[in-house]
């Protein structure tokens, strides 16, 4: 197995691990506000999130930033809750435009990246080159996220197209559920 394959798999497994559901819930919250015909926007959004994630992961692994784990664990559910509130309050993008929502996804990615970074840094230590581990880990994460998007889209297809549920109802249902989970995470983290 190559170094690339090893860390790609770690990234993919991490995102698809049902025990690490905070990431899954965030991705679902990110998707909820978008109707099926906006799938391109969702992919850009998820990729913006991964880019933000990669930036802090790299900075923290290189020891350029250090944020206490408990603070990050409080901030992560806050990002999920904020995304849900924006979905419900009024799809954020309609208010502030597409670029702002991509920027916000990137910003939330920065916070989520900090969540892994303390762990990955602790494990990688002073390994000579962390470029390949970091890059492949993040590509694995992105692939895992796109898989979650695909599964979510398949469920959404059934609900919206086959059962004919209005998108707004679906959005409220999913965002409400995700907000509940993030509130529990927030309580658990403190």
């Amino acid at each position: 197995m190559s170094e690339f394959q090893v860390y790609l798999q770690l990234g993919f497994d991490h995102i698809s691990d049902l025990n690490a559901y905070d990431h899954i819930v965030f991705i679902i919250a990110l998707c909820a506000a978008y109707p099926l015909n906006r799938w391109r926007s969702v992919i850009v959004l998820v990729t913006a999130f991964t880019i933000g994630h990669s930036i802090t992961l790299a900075l923290a692994t290189l020891r350029l930033v250090l944020v206490p784990t408990d603070l990050v664990e409080t901030l992560i559910p806050v990002t999920i809750l904020a995304t849900c509130l924006m979905n419900v309050w009024r799809p954020f993008e309609a208010q502030f435009g597409r670029k702002t929502s991509y920027g916000l996804a990137l910003f939330f990615g920065l916070i989520h990246g900090l969540g892994f970074s303390n762990y990955l840094r602790a494990l990688l230590g002073m390994e000579e080159s962390i470029v390949v581990p970091l890059l492949s880990f993040n590509i694995g994460l992105e692939l895992g996220q796109l898989m979650i998007v695909a599964i979510f889209a398949a469920v959404a297809f059934v609900i919206l197209r086959i059962l004919g549920t209005p998108h707004r109802q679906w959005n409220l249902f999913v965002s409400g559920a995700a907000a509940g989970v993030s509130a529990m995470l927030l309580i658990g983290a403190n």
């Binding site: 770690l10 991490h14 691990d17 025990n19 690490a20 559901y21 905070d22 990431h23 250090l66 206490p68 784990t69 408990d70 664990e73 992560i76 969540g115 892994f116 762990y119 990955l120 494990l123 990688l124 390994e127 995470l185 658990g188 983290a189």
Partner: peptide, 27 residues
């Protein structure tokens, strides 16, 4: 900072938090 999440602060087998990452690296 690390000890906030350490065993002294968190009774029971695991933290209530869901952000788990179960990996070891051996060189």
């Amino acid at each position: 900072a690390a000890s906030v999440l350490g065993p002294a602060a968190v009774p029971g087998p695991a933290s209530a938090y869901a952000h788990v990452f179960y990996v070891s690296i051996t060189r």
